[in-house]
Write a protein that binds this DNA or RNA. Structure first.
Lengths: 161, 161
DNA sequence: CAATTTTAGTTGCTTTTTACTACCAAATAT
DNA sequence: ATATTTGGTAGTAAAAAGCAACTAAAATTG
C-alpha cells in the first residue's frame, strides 16, 4: 500500500494494516498453526521480503508477537496475540461469505467447524439486541466519539431511513 | 494486486477481489448510500483511474450492478447486488474489530446500529450449533468438496486438537 | 437551442510496491 | 568441524498506484 488512509473510519483503519493481497493470508496461516518464517513462506507462497515486511507490521500492530525459541541464540516463532486471535470473527465472516458467494454451490473449499462437535459453524449474521436478524438496509452508521469532523459530516449525511 | 492467489481457499479467493487498499472502502460507501462515480470519488479520496478499475472488477464479480439513469443518453448509478449486500456481515465484523482493537477506548469512530432501535449492534461472535460462543482455538478448518488436493493436504495437516 | 458546466471517465507520466533471484550470517544437524 | 537449514537482506525488473491533463457526452442555463 502506497499511502495510508487518513479517514477516521474503522474500515479505513483496518485497511491500513490489512488492505493488501497477503496480510490476511498470513493471519489465516497463524490460525492454522503456522509459527515459523518458513512455514508462512511455504503455506502462503509469498515472497520472502514481502513476508518479512508484513510480519514486521503485524508485530508493530500487536497482532502477532515474536517468541525466541533459539537454544544457542536467536530463533523466532510468531504467535497470535489476543488482539490477533480476536480477528477470528473477521476470518469466519470472510470464509463464510466467500464459500457461499464466490465458489460454486456444494464446492466449498474450507469449512470452519466447531472442534467439539465437528459440525460446520452456523452462519454469522448481524442481529439486533433482541436477536432479530438484520438485513443490510436495517443497519445505520452513526458517528462515534472518535470520529473526525469530516467523518461526522459524512456519516450524518446518510439519510436516517 | 499483481498476481492472483492460486490457492482454493475462500480467504485467498476473497483477497483476489478485495485484497487491496480501496475496494472495501468502495463497498463501505455503497452501504452508506453512494451510487455515483463522483460520490465514490469524493467520499473515498481515491484516484479516478483506480476507482474506474475497481468498479469494473466489482461489476465483473457481480458485487455491484450498473443502472442507466440517463435522461437523454447513458449515465450510470452503481448499486449493490444481493451478493454485494451480503457483504454486510464482513463489514460489521471488520467495523467492530477495528473499533475495539485499533482505536482508543471510548474513541470509536463509527458505530453500526439498528435503524429501528438506534442501538449499537451487539458484537458478532462465532458460535456453535447450540449458540455457545467459540474461542479461536475451538474452531477447526476442514477441507470441503471444492478443496484442491494441495488445499486438502494443507488443511488435513492441521492437528485436530 | 446554443453555450456553459458538470460528470465520468481515459491517457500518459512519475513514484512506489511487488516479484524474483542471488546472496549471506547465524543456528542447527551430522 | 563441517554441512545444511533457517531467516533473513539487497538488487533489479515489472506491475500497480498516484497524479495531472485531456476528452466526450450529459445536464444545466440563459
Amino acid at each position: 500500500m502506497t499511502k495510508k488512509h487518513a479517514q477516521t473510519c474503522p474500515i479505513a483503519e483496518f485497511l491500513n494494516t490489512f488492505g493488501d493481497a497477503w496480510t490476511l493470508l498470513v493471519i489465516r496461516e497463524a490460525f492454522y498453526g503456522s509459527t515459523r518464517f518458513g512455514e508462512f513462506l511455504k503455506n502462503t507462497g509469498m515472497a520472502k521480503n514481502i513476508l518479512s515486511n508484513r510480519l514486521s507490521t503485524l508485530l508493530d500492530q500487536g497482532v502477532l508477537r515474536r517468541v525466541d525459541i533459539g537454544e544457542r541464540g536467536a530463533r523466532y516463532e510468531y504467535h497470535l496475540t489476543d488482539k490477533g486471535e480476536s480477528l477470528i470473527t473477521v476470518l469466519v465472516a470472510i470464509n463464510q461469505w466467500a464459500n457461499e458467494q464466490m465458489l460454486a454451490k456444494g464446492r466449498e473449499a474450507v469449512n470452519l467447524c466447531a472442534r467439539s462437535s465437528g459440525r460446520k459453524l452456523p452462519k454469522l449474521v448481524p442481529r439486533d439486541h433482541n436477536g432479530k436478524e438484520l438485513a443490510a438496509g436495517e443497519i445505520l452508521a452513526k458517528a462515534g466519539p472518535g470520529a473526525s469532523a469530516a467523518a461526522k459530516k459524512r456519516i450524518n449525511a446518510i439519510p436516517a431511513s
